[in-house]
Each structure stands twice: as C-alpha cells, then as structure tokens.
C-alpha cells in the first residue's frame, strides 16, 4: 500500500489506510454510533425502570420457585415430548417434499422457464421471513389447536430454509458431467437425474438433517400458541405459576435438543 506512506520532515510516516479510506471509516463509525445511541434511547424511554431495578430480586424469586423441580411431573411429559418430535420430524419431511421441486425451479441453471424463477424465489423469501411461531399462530386459527397446525407451521418455515440452501447448491454443481450427460442424448429429466441429482445429494441430506435439528428447537415453543407439543405444558405451567414444573420442562427440552444436535452432527459428519 504505497498510498499510505506519506513523508513528513523527511521521515516516512506509515499509516494503515489512506486518508480517504480513513475518513470513510470514521464517518461510518459516527453514523453507526449515532444510530446506536438513538435506538438505545428509544428502548430506555419505553422501559419501566422500577421493574428493572427489581430484576435481581425477581430472578432470585424465580429460581427459588423452580427449586426443587417437581421431578415426578416428568412422567406426564412423555406424550407431549413425542408430539414435539413428531411435529419436528413430520414437518421437516413435508417441508422437504415441497422445497425440493421449488429449489429446482429457483436455481438459475435448472429453472425450466425464466418466469418461474422469480415466483419460486418469492415463495422461498416469504417462507424464510416468517417465523414458524407466526405460521403456527395463523394455522391454529384456521385448523384449530393441535399437532397438525404445528406440523404444517414447521413445514412452511422449512420450505424457505431448505429451498434456499438447496438451490444455492444446485447453482454450484460442476458443469462438465452435465455436458457429458447431455452429449449422450439424454432428455431434460434424465439430465436432472444423472447430471444434477448425484451432485447435490450430500448437500441435500446435510441441509435436511440440519433443519430437522433446528425444527426440534422450534417445535418446543409452538405449544405456546396452541400448536401442540411440549410447549402446551410449558404454557399451562407458566400460567399457573408452577415454576417447579417449568424447571422440569426446561431440563427435558435441554436434553432433547442436545441429543438431536448430537444426532444431526453425527449424520452430517457421516455424509461428508
């Protein structure tokens, strides 16, 4: 960076950045800091500080109520836990089924028609922007409370996640095998199944398992809005201020998520 060397009093002075870059950096910092201060002030104005001053005592109180956890309550939690696992697993499966064709429509190199591509991207973006809990909120309204709403909510959120990562994987495949398969006189579908599918299979499996792992975590809270699973019990326990039961639920959720994360890491490791 010869530009950062200036001469002063016949001594070369080295700076890491040029003057202009330095100015740009400083102004970026200034704008950032101003924005941060402004935002902090908005938050501070909307906060009831007497509650905050009380927070330490509240936390102590909360922990006091949680201990000792009501362990035998765990016996009632197996069914909700089973539902939670089903919501995550079936939801992921359903999401995969829908996301798979959408990814092919969204990838630049496999999209059959230029008009379909923005449509597929639109579906992916909408699905990604809306959290599964919001989907659940809407679906409970339509389908009524229960695991079905949860499964569909998880599926709707997963479409965008899996679809996006998968279409990016499709766009990164090697072109030479594709060329070779077309040169044999293969049809479009055959080109997909011989040229594209084998190349994206590992990525596809990895993405699916990863999303399943995330979905286990998401499925634990869907019950808060009535969409089934262990969240229902959590909601009930919180509403009755039974914090010793809440503690049991937390321990169970922690263990479940840890196990699912371990499984997902193992499977992904085995694929690669």
């Amino acid at each position: 960076m010869p530009l950062s060397i200036a001469t002063r009093n016949h001594q070369p002075v080295w700076r890491r950045r040029t003057t202009r870059a330095q100015w740009a950096l400083w102004s970026a910092w200034l704008v950032g800091t101003a924005l941060l201060v402004l935002c902090s002030k908005v938050i501070a104005d909307n906060t009831t500080w007497s509650f905050v001053a009380d927070a330490g005592r509240q936390a102590g109180d909360l922990i006091g109520r949680m201990l000792p956890p009501e362990w035998y309550y765990a016996g009632e939690l197996w069914r909700p836990l089973w539902d939670t696992l089903n919501i995550a697993t079936l939801g992921t499966g359903l999401g995969i089924l829908i996301a798979f064709p959408i990814a092919f429509l969204a990838a630049r190199n496999t999209s059959p028609h230029p008009a379909l591509r923005p449509l597929a991207l639109m579906v992916i973006v909408s699905s990604r922007s809306i959290n599964s809990l919001i989907w659940a909120l809407l679906l409970v309204l339509i389908l009524g409370p229960g695991t079905l709403a949860g499964i569909i909510a998880i599926a709707l959120r997963s479409i965008g996640f899996i679809g996006k990562l998968l279409y990016e994987a499709i766009e990164e495949i090697h072109l030479t095998p594709m060329e070779a398969v077309s040169a044999t006189g293969a049809s479009r579908l055959q080109l997909m199944s011989y040229g594209v599918l084998p190349q994206i299979m590992p990525a596809f499996a990895g993405i699916s398992v990863y999303r399943w792992d995330i979905n286990i975590r998401e499925a634990t809270v869907l019950g808060l809005v009535g969409a089934g699973g262990i969240g229902l019990e959590l909601n009930a326990s919180i509403n009755t201020l039974a914090w010793d039961r809440v503690a049991v639920i937390f321990v169970l959720i922690f263990a479940t998520v840890m196990v699912s994360e371990w499984v997902s890491a193992k499977v992904r490791h085995a694929i690669i």
Binding site: V42, I43, N46, T47, T48, F51, V52, A55, Q58, L62
Partner: peptide, 9 residues
C-alpha cells in the same frame, strides 16, 4: 419478561 417486566428491554 418475568424478570424485567413487559417491554422492549
């Protein structure tokens, strides 16, 4: 929320 009360904080 239980600790700090309702609100953005």
């Amino acid at each position: 929320v239980a600790m700090f009360g309702f609100g953005p904080l």
